[in-house]
Design a protein around this nucleic acid. Sequence first.
DNA 1: AGTCCTCACCGG
DNA 2: AACTCCGGTGAGGACT
Length: 532
Amino acid sequence: MRREPDLVAAVRARPEVARWVWRSTAEVYPRLLAAGVRVERCYDVEDAEQLLLGHEGRLGEPRGAAAPGRACGTPRYRRIPAARRRARLAGLLFEPRPSVSVPFDGLLAVYAEQLRRHDRAGHPGRMRLLTAAESAGMLVAAEMHRAGLPWRADVHRDLLNELLGERYAGGGEPRRLAELADEVSAAFGRRVRPDLPADVVKAFAQAGIRVRSTRRWELEEIDHPAVKPLVAYKKLYRIWTAHGWSWLADWVRDGRFRPEYLPGGTVSGRWTTSGGGALQIPKVIRRAVVADEGWRLVVADADQMEPRVLAAISRDPGLMEVAGHPDDLYTRLSDRAFSGDREHAKLALLGAIYGQTSGDGLKNLAALRRRFPRAVAYVDEAAKAGEEGRLVRTWLGRTSPQAVDAGEDDEAGLPQEAPEGGEFTPGYTPGYASGNARARGRFTRNFVVQGSAADWALLMLAALRRSLAGMRAELVFFQHDEVIVHCPEGEAEAVTAAIRAAGDEAGRIAFGPTPVRFPFTTATVERYADAK
DNA sequence: AGTCCTCACCGG
DNA sequence: AACTCCGGTGAGGACT
């Protein structure tokens, strides 16, 4: 064993190393990137620990943007109630503070034991693939943060002026919002604050209309002159508060928007981001995402990712046949089982994946079950497991969190039991509590599909990262089933080909030999908004 | 003054 | 047609 005084020099001096094993990519890799050093592969011990603990059923708490060791010191961390923070800390192997170092021989022992724990997994090969893929994802996350999404602040400002109007000197609402608020008040015949739901509900009540909430879809069913300006206000208010001038000041520097990506930030393995709401950029704001001079954005969206993943993991012969072509899956599905009605076919399939409880999807589910019995049985079995309190796994082995038993005293801050009958309750989170078996069933039903899709996406990113390595092109954005690559115009064609290849390669590696295809819709554009 | 909760929007 | 799955974010207001 030897001590190296300088991380960057130590890594740079060993180009022959095939894979770096380290405690935390998020802690180490940004320092390397800052010095211009990239590594090909790594093994993130702390991330693997989370995945292994989950697989072993020893993780009752979710990982998230606020998980200790990930986002210490961020505002989100402080938002978590103290009782929950304690519960999270209890399941952690490592000290959450980056400043507390793990002894080197301790790390080696943990790594060696982790290798043995992979062997004991239900599918050791898949489990090794999962931890390797997520480690690759950690590299991608750090590199994307460093590269940043090209963002034109001037275009964004023009857009805000156009949508919201000028700001008044004293602060407060911009002109357009103030006008809409006046229109709302005029329609009610009294002063009403459109940003206060309680005020709006009261105003409608006085007008003789009872509303349960002020959600947009509910308001739109009401016939009242206040509805139109109210809905318009809510849309613009959202842009003003979440993506307005202060967002611009907080998050855009030197023509780049740099969110912090957290691979595996959700229980299902989807990524989250921290800061700037990077995964919720409104469509209109995407006009501000503009490629550099002479460069292009290659925007690629995986087509019907979740149905294709369901075909691959359930091995349903009929659904694999439908998903075995690159063209629109729902059209083929409707030709087979829904006499050409694409919308019904789509709703039925999504309803099966989401565990729909009412509506048209339920009727069409019967048709789906007749034609694609193994696919429906796959998600039904996952739902049954959840209802009975068992764990479910994604294809590669990411495991649903343990249902938390109701009644334990360290649960302060966790949502309480949902009401009988499975009604939707805002704030109730089925993944974390066991109060409602049916809600838990919907969660596990969706988990196996959404999570396996996240498995695939991770492998796709890793494959894409490898093929971009020799180019100037950079991955600059990733959102569940969508990637953006920023590249010189001349590389756009090669990048597009690389993305398509990565999709099918990820399918083969994740799911083994399968006829299922994983095509992308791609667009080479100068502005993100032009991709759709 | 700081913490916590609710509401409602955005995205997939 | 209805609000089912996974999330982040900010504002307002009640509370300590």
